[in-house]
Nucleic acid binder design. Sequence first.
RNA 1: GGCGCCGUCGCCAAGUGGCUAAGGCCGAGGUCUGCAAAACCUCUACCGGCGGUUCGAAUCCGCCCGGCGCCUCCA
Length: 486
Amino acid sequence: MSLRVFNTSTGQKEEFIPLREGHVGMYVCGVTVYDYCHIGHARAAIVFDTVYRYLQHLGYEVNDVCNFTDIDDKIIKRANEENIGWQEVTEKYIQAFYEDMGQLNITPPTTEPKATDHIDGMLDMVSSLIEQGKAYEAEGDVYFSVRNFAEYGKLSGHNLDDLKAGARVEPGEHKRDPLDFALWKKSKPGEPSWDSPWGPGRPGWHIECSAMSRHFLGTQFDIHGGGKDLVFPHHENEIAQSQGCSGTPPVKYWLHNGFVNINEEKMSKSLGNFFTIRDILERYHPEVLRLFLLSHHYRGPIDFADQYLEDAKKMLNRFYELFDKVNSALGTSSLDIYIQQIIDNNKLASDFVTRFEQAMNDDFNTALALAHMNEELTRLNKEITEMYSDPIKVNNELVLIDDDVARLYYCGKKILGIFHSDPHIYKLWNIDHLNLDTENVEALIKQRKAAREAKDWAKADECRDALTALGVVLEDTAQGTVWKVK
RNA sequence: GGCGCCGUCGCCAAGUGGCUAAGGCCGAGGUCUGCAAAACCUCUACCGGCGGUUCGAAUCCGCCCGGCGCCUCCA
């Protein structure tokens, strides 16, 4: 079965056939850098990172472009509020973006262009649109003439008359039609500006993506992604500009992720009901957030609450228990070595991997893929349980199991972007947050060991209760007592 | 007002015409353990309501109830 993707512009799942065999051009709308990223940004980043990873898994060479919007009203406003230069604002939040995305294990895209590095490309497109009669200059502004683009509204399923009812013209604008949108804005005194044939000004929001996608991916490319809220007007306008220039539809498949909600309401800057990525990562391992977001289909809404992160955390713990068990039995990093061997020897195929791929092929159904992973996890745990109860089988069958564990590990680590941590270290992730005195922990474990050897169970339980109070959980195994953080 | 989405086990969540409706969390019982933990086993849903189409529907159509999104900056 081949990959099928839901295309916003047709409203259907379609077989994914790239424009150029073996290659995929993909553009994902990035962030406007005037504040820290919130969980909604995290979702978009994780969804399209997973798309990127899966396309690579399928063998495509992917050119993945994700932009920074580093000139915009909100950036100027923020700079004025803080009485600093607008570039200080963008530099600060671009840096923060890299830190957050690194935490979330987002694969760095092939290219991460900044809008302000592509002003020339935007000016070219605006000039071309004016020459073709699809845009017009008015008092230093330039507007796209929506009535001159027959397909306007196709992506978002609107028609011009419906849209007209809700459209309005801001004071100071000089649109011929309320639906026309700005390609170029005349700058006010003191605002950042660039020279243009129409006087000093700055680009409208939408034109940057048209210019940058054209520059890096050409006039036609395969996938354009972003949040659902960008369908209208941003992506609708992008199509109008790009197609207005080149004469051809710029994008073959439009993919849009659903929102993150708080109490069933959209999380957004304007409603003020948002959590930043940083807020969450103070309390939860980044992979918990990632797993939580991937346990829902990317197109649907997700309601956000700590309880759901707790659920995801427990699911993640189960996987890491197995990986830690295998690594501690076979040596640190042995799973990573196995993954490489499996790839090198072309032994990735298995019934489980087939099921996983079938789920992913159906419009990146990560929720179903995770269900298969959980089933596989249970199956492997069962085999290991049986092996330990029958020592003769251990030597004969351990190798077979290693391959299957490695396949499971591969799907999570390479495709879903989880299992990035060392399994043993993962279990201790909360140490910093608990302010644990590890020497004290070790001492208590030692005391308990002595008490157990003396069969002083009351004393042994006393030690463990003390550790429990510290948030430490013990496990007595054949290899000795190990501990982890709750 | 226009366009569109959603309502599946106590909670989260796949499934969108046909095997006994995935999976996770929580809960109950059991195996293992000095006791635990981890792991494993067993148990827990006729899919918002009504009507229709069909041999057959959670899955298609209609109406109703409830929730939400876009149409204005927003992942």
